[in-house]
Design a binder for these strands. Structure first.
Length: 815
RNA sequence: GCGCGGAUGGCGGAAUCGGUAGACGCGCGGGACUUAGGAUCCCGUGGGGCGACCCGUCCGAGUUCGAGUCUCGGUCCGCGCACCA
């Protein structure tokens, strides 16, 4: 360090200080006036559909966590645009649903009013400021009749295809929200919204038969480029298991026989009793007639199970099952630890090899018989593999063999067969609420449920004053007599409308199809537009939707595909779950009082700084704790870039420095590779390093203009405003974000030309030296041995072994 | 309990196929410019030792010339599921 380095870094007077507020407002206006982000949807050369999960417009507004998907997705979209794609990046509002309605009730306003205000606030005051290139000419609002008309259309298509049915079943009832919920909306026995313990009710409801698609939905996961964590969650949720069904004859009750499902047919000889799910809809048929009253009284006594069941609760029914291979008479029990709704709703209990059966057998004093060697079931069950014992002709078989042979035997006797079961259940979509699309069905006493003819859609949600749920099992819409009473579209006789509305998740299950076609009002999605734009190329959102929205959307797309409405069976080719941003170790939520409003940060630091800072916190897909401590570092970086790029003006290409050119090409490659994999944090680190170097050069007058412009292009997706401003000041007529202007790199130039070779002796680093990249192993070895320190350590002895790795290391093994 | 992630300086985090830790940033220490500086810029910054060196990626084994990275066994944290037979 000779001359005082700081002296050359005084802020040059001819450069204005960067004023983020003024600059951001100005470019927002210009972009909007010029229509820079209005995508030409017809005949694009390389369409790229870049989607982020749309928000539900809570009245509280966005919190900083929202920046992650919206800015993170936008960086990717802006990059694709610079790379030459025609990028379509729409945004919309999931405005229907219980969450919105509950909020409206809380503040005593009508949801339509609250949502109108909230949507406006989201779009005009919040989303607009993040700097994302949303194409607002194609927005979607699920509560808009122009949208939900087609949600109802979708319902009708599914209904006509036999994928929706009206049937009675056990449903989850939330006593606080006063509506039924889908299984996916129940978390550990509680309502996902209000955390009230849900109850089981038997109601006649609308179900979407998603279970019919269990296997295709499972299989196609292998073809999708999605976050592995999300795919794993879907696999687990679909929950395929392979086993066998086994038929037992019954004695002493109305039913003649019962089929059970087991994944362990090899333990058949260890079955000592049968258990019917206490919530089995036909439990009475398993009970001797004279005991039905007693059993029903017992069944109605215990409260709904939440979480871990009590394995000691159960009742002996008095009937018997006949073991299909031994003929033994096994007592039949009913217990809540067995699910009436999974498999066949009945099990064969093998207490020696199943922990739940074991706990139950112990509590009820039932026999426990070991049929697999290698364990002792007096203290606990053991479910591992081994060799069969106490199993008649199958003694000595391994568990795997036993499974196969016992199934074979049962099949011969027509007493059983292999069977596949899924945990996935049908999707319950009725909601006894107001704020949703009315289910487009008319109930006719003669024709049963009839779909509203497509030309009569939408079935408008009537405007009523008192929209609060009644808790009577029907929606408030049932009180609107002149709306409810209609004529049957089939027979013309008097009929009544369905008064339930559909689940919010039906709204969002198809919204990606609507965005490209919002300018069509005669079809839900235009064929050509859909062929052009679907499937979505990149989708970003939270993993909290892994088994809700993301599964429903896949199902709907696949069903529409099978009906011939869409060209592809999967909606989202590539999906990345962003990490969750937590605050002081807890999820951000209003109730915890730790919600940070992004507006304050954007006011204080500017959108560019906030975007960069959020992306720099850590790996994009990991998330982490939000702390605003380091945000000043990002401001410093942008100020440095502001200064460096405007002062680096040398453009005499003749004296182009090979070293600088290599550095530039390497930077492009690094940033390009990183953005492509959403490694934003490391991409930013490279940009920072480069900006610092350029700043040094610029301050001494040697900064190259080509470096400045390269930096601006690479930084543009992250910091769209400041880069546009500088680009403009540099005298460019076009936008820095112009499609197809990402700088190209030459891989040969980008590759490092020198390499530092570490020399280790017995694994300890003892020296290093520099060579041209690609120097051969032999040459490296020779060079290593001549290093003074190495020669000294060798003391004239020949090494026992030398390992050289090109561009990396030479390891010398002695003695 | 089952499944999936993770554990690296004071902090957030880097580290291709196993190649000799700690990129980048924050914070901290020192300095420059300053009436001043919470502004800006520069230098330093894992621990120990004057030094040659030694010790360091949750813990314990192992494979290897070489392990943050691979294998086995633990501990702790996060997320998902949780009666699914």
């Amino acid at each position: 360090m000779d001359a005082d380095p700081a002296a050359t870094h005084a802020e040059p007077t001819r450069l204005d200080a960067y004023d983020h507020a003024g600059v951001e407002a100005r470019w927002r206006r210009i972009w909007s006036e010029r229509g820079d982000y209005r995508t030409q949807l017809d005949d694009p050369e390389r369409p790229f559909y870049n989607l982020m999960m749309f928000p539900y417009p809570s009245a509280e507004g966005l919190h900083v966590g929202h920046i992650i998907p919206f800015a993170g997705g936008d960086i990717y979209g802006r990059w694709r645009r610079l790379m030459g794609d025609t990028v379509f990046e729409p945004m919309g509002f999931d405005a229907f649903g219980i969450h919105s309605e509950n909020y409206a009730m809380k503040i005593g306003e009508h949801p339509a009013v609250v949502m109108r205000r909230a949507v406006n606030n989201f779009r005009e005051n919040q989303l607009a400021r993040i700097g994302s290139m949303f194409d607002w000419s194609h927005q979607v609002n699920t509560a808009d009749p122009a949208y939900y008309r087609w949600t109802q259309w979708l319902f009708v298509q599914l209904f006509n295809a036999g994928l929706i049915e009206w049937r009675e079943g056990a449903v989850n009832w939330c006593p606080s929200c006063l509506t039924v919920l889908a299984d996916e909306q129940v978390e550990q026995g509680r309502c996902e919204r209000c955390h009230t313990v849900v109850q089981t009710r038997y109601l006649r409801q609308w179900w979407i038969k998603i279970t019919r698609y269990a296997q295709p939905l499972l299989d196609a996961l292998d073809t999708l480029d999605w976050s592995e964590s999300t795919k794993t969650m879907q696999r687990n949720w679909i929950g395929r298991s392979e086993g066998a069904t086994i038929l037992f004859d019954l004695e002493g009750c109305r039913r003649k026989d019962v089929t059970v499902y087991t994944t362990r047919p090899d333990t058949l000889f260890g079955a000592t009793f049968l258990v019917i799910g206490a919530d089995h809809p036909e439990l009475e048929e398993f009970v001797p007639p004279e005991r039905i009253g007693t059993v029903n009284a017992w069944r109605n006594k215990f409260p709904p199970t939440v979480g871990e069941p009590d394995f000691a609760v159960g009742m002996e029914l008095g009937s018997f099952a006949i073991h299909p291979l031994t003929g033994a008479r096994l007592p039949v029990w009913a217990a809540p630890y067995v699910l009436g709704g999974y498999g066949t709703g009945a099990i064969m209990a093998v207490p020696a090899h199943d922990s739940r059966d074991w706990a139950f057998a112990r509590a009820q004093n039932l026999p426990i018989v070991d049929v697999i060697s290698g364990g002792d079931s007096t203290e606990a069950s053991h479910s591992g593999n081994g060799v069969l014992i106490n199993s008649g002709e199958f003694d000595g078989a391994t568990t795997d063999d036993g499974k196969r042979r016992i199934i074979e035997r049962l099949t011969e006797l027509r007493r059983g067969e292999t069977s596949v079961q899924y945990k996935l259940r049908d999707w319950l979509i009725s909601r006894q609420r107001y704020w949703g699309p009315p289910i487009p069905i008319i109930h006719c006493p003669k024709d049963g449920p009839v779909a509203v003819p497509e030309e009569d859609l939408p079935v408008l949600l009537p405007e009523i004053e008192d929209f609060r749920p009644r808790g009577t099992g029907v929606s408030p819409l049932a009180t609107v007599e002149d709306w409810v009473n209609v004529t049957c579209p089939k027979c013309g006789g008097p009929a009544r409308r369905e008064t339930d509305v559909s689940d919010t998740f039906l709204d969002s299950a198809w919204y990606h199809l609507r965005y490209p076609s919002t300018d069509f009002d005669d079809v839900p999605f235009d064929k050509e537009r859909t062929d052009t734009w679907l499937p979505v190329n990149m989708y970003i959102g939270g993993n909290e939707h892994a088994v809700r929205h993301l599964l429903y959307a896949r199902f709907v797309m696949r069903a529409l595909y099978d009906m011939g409405h869409v060209p592809v069976p999967e909606p989202y080719t590539r999906f990345r779950a962003h990490g969750m941003i937590i605050m002081d170790g807890a999820k951000m939520s209003k109730s915890r009082g730790n919600v940070l409003n992004p507006d304050e940060y954007i006011d204080r630091y500017g959108a560019d700084t906030v975007r960069l800072f959020m992306m720099y916190l850590g790996p994009y897909t990991l998330g982490g704790d939000f702390r605003d401590k380091g945000i000043a570092g990002m401001t410093r970086f942008l100020h440095r870039a502001w200064r460096a790029t405007q002062l680096a003006t040398r453009d005499d290409a003749d004296d182009d420095d090979d070293v600088l050119e290599r550095r530039r090409h390497r930077l492009i490659q690094q940033v390009e590779d990183d953005i492509g994999e959403l490694r934003y944090n490391t991409a930013i680190a490279y940009l920072m390093e480069f900006a610092r170097a350029l700043d040094h050069e610029a301050s001494s007058g040697s900064g190259r203009r080509v470096d400045a412009e390269t930096l601006l292009k690479l930084l543009a997706p992250f910091a769209p405003f400041i880069t546009e401003e500088i680009w403009d000041r540099l005298g460019h007529e076009t936008s820095v974000h112009e499609q197809g202007t990402w700088p190209a790199y030459d891989a040969a130039l980008a590759a490092p030309q020198r390499a530092t070779i570490a020399v280790t002796v017995n694994g300890k680093r003892r020296a290093d030296f520099e060579v041209d990249a690609g120097t051969s192993e032999e040459a490296l070895t020779a060079l290593a041995l001549t290093q003074p320190r190495i020669a000294e350590l060798l003391g004239g002895q020949a090494p026992r072994k030398v390992i050289a790795v090109v561009d990396r290391i030479v390891n010398i093994v002695i003695a």
